[in-house]
C-alpha cells in the first residue's frame, strides 16, 4: 500500500517534471547562453567566440566577459536606426492592420449566424498555408511588370510600371497581408459578443449611428483592439522573412540585422547582443499583453 502510493506520487510528479525539464534545457539554458555569448569576444575559430566555458577556469571565464558588444551597438548607429525603424514599421503596420481589419471583423460580426463560422474558417485557413509561400506570392504581384502593374495598365489606370517591390510599401503590404488573421480574430471575438440592443438603445436616446460607433462600439471593442494590436506588433518588430523578400536593401529591420550579423558577418557575440537588445524592446509590449490577457480571462464569467 505504501509502495503503491509512493509509486503513484512519483508518476504524478512526472507530469509537470518532464515538460519542465524539457523547457529548462531547451529554452532557458539556450537563452542564458545567448546572454553569456553577448558578453564574449568574437574569435576566428570554431565556435567563433571566446571564452568558451571550461569548468576548471571559472574565474578566468567571468573575467573575460564584458559589455564591449553592447558598447559597439551604441556606437554604431546602424543598430540604433534598425531598432527605430523596426518599431516604426511595426507600429505603422499595426495601425494599417487596424484600419483594414476592423471593417472586416465588423462585417463578420454582423453577418447571419450560419455564415459566421464559415467566415471565421476562411480567415484562419490562410494561416495553415505556408507563411513563406504567402509572402512569395506577393513578389510576383508587386514586382515591376508584375501582375499588379499588368492589371492596372490593362485597366488604363497607370502608364508607368509600378515599382513597389523592394520598398517599405511592399513590407507594409506583406505585414498587413500575413498578420491580418491575428488582427481580425480578436476584434471579431469582441464585436460578435456585443449586444445589438446597446446600439438600438443609443439610437433611441438620440445618438446618430456614426456617433454611437465611437461612443459604444469602439470602447466595447477595446479589449479586442488592444489584443489584436499587440498580437501583430510584437512579432512584426522581429520580422525577418517579409523585409528580406519584399523590402529592399534600405529597409532596416532588427531581425534582419541579426540574421546578417550571424550568417554573413559570422559575428556571433554581436548577433547575440542584437538578440538581447531586441528582447529588451519587446519586454514592454509582452508584459502589457500578458496583463491584458490575464484581465480578459479573469473578467470572463
Amino acid at each position: 500500500m505504501v509502495e503503491r502510493s509512493l509509486l503513484r506520487r512519483v508518476t504524478a510528479g512526472l507530469v509537470p517534471a518532464i515538460p519542465y525539464l524539457w523547457l529548462g534545457v531547451l529554452f532557458l539554458v539556450p537563452f542564458l547562453i545567448v546572454l553569456k555569448i553577448s558578453l564574449s569576444d568574437p574569435a576566428v575559430a570554431q565556435p567563433p567566440y571566446k571564452p568558451v566555458f571550461e569548468w576548471g577556469d571559472i574565474a578566468g571565464f567571468f573575467g573575460a566577459l564584458d559589455l564591449e558588444n553592447f558598447e559597439l551597438l551604441t556606437q554604431d548607429d546602424l543598430y540604433f536606426r534598425a531598432t527605430l525603424s523596426s518599431v516604426r514599421i511595426a507600429a505603422f503596420s499595426t495601425l494599417l492592420l487596424l484600419l483594414v481589419g476592423f471593417p472586416i471583423a465588423y462585417g463578420m460580426a454582423r453577418a447571419p449566424e450560419r455564415v459566421r463560422s464559415l467566415l471565421v474558417a476562411l480567415v484562419i485557413l490562410p494561416f495553415w498555408t505556408s507563411f513563406l509561400i504567402r509572402i512569395y506570392a506577393w513578389v510576383a504581384i508587386l514586382k515591376p511588370e508584375g501582375l499588379l502593374t499588368q492589371a492596372l495598365t490593362g485597366l488604363g489606370l497607370i502608364a508607368q510600371p509600378l515599382d513597389i517591390l523592394n520598398t517599405e510599401t511592399a513590407v507594409y503590404i506583406g505585414i498587413v497581408y500575413a498578420y491580418l488573421p491575428f488582427m481580425v480574430l480578436p476584434l471579431y471575438a469582441t464585436l460578435e459578443k456585443m449586444d445589438d440592443t446597446l446600439l438600438e438603445a443609443a439610437l433611441d436616446l438620440g445618438s446618430p449611428p456614426w456617433r454611437s460607433f465611437w461612443t459604444i462600439t469602439v470602447p466595447l471593442a477595446m479589449p479586442g483592439i488592444v489584443a489584436g494590436s499587440l498580437l501583430c506588433f510584437i512579432p512584426a518588430v522581429g520580422e525577418f522573412v517579409i523585409p528580406d523578400l519584399l523590402g529592399g536593401s534600405e529597409t532596416l529591420m532588427i531581425g534582419r540585422q541579426l540574421w546578417s550579423e550571424f550568417f554573413s558577418n559570422r559575428d556571433w557575440p554581436l548577433a547575440s547582443a542584437v538578440a538581447i537588445l531586441l528582447l529588451i524592446i519587446l519586454v514592454v509590449p509582452i508584459v502589457i499583453y500578458r496583463d491584458v490577457e490575464a484581465r480578459r480571462v479573469e473578467g470572463r464569467p
Binding site: P30, F31, I33, P235, V237, F240, W268, A275, L282, Y289
Partner: peptide, 15 residues
C-alpha cells in the same frame, strides 16, 4: 510563442 523566431533559432543553435 511571443519571442521573435530569430532569437529562438539563434539561442538553440548556440546551445
Amino acid at each position: 510563442m511571443v519571442m521573435p523566431e530569430v532569437i529562438t533559432g539563434l539561442s538553440l543553435l548556440l546551445f
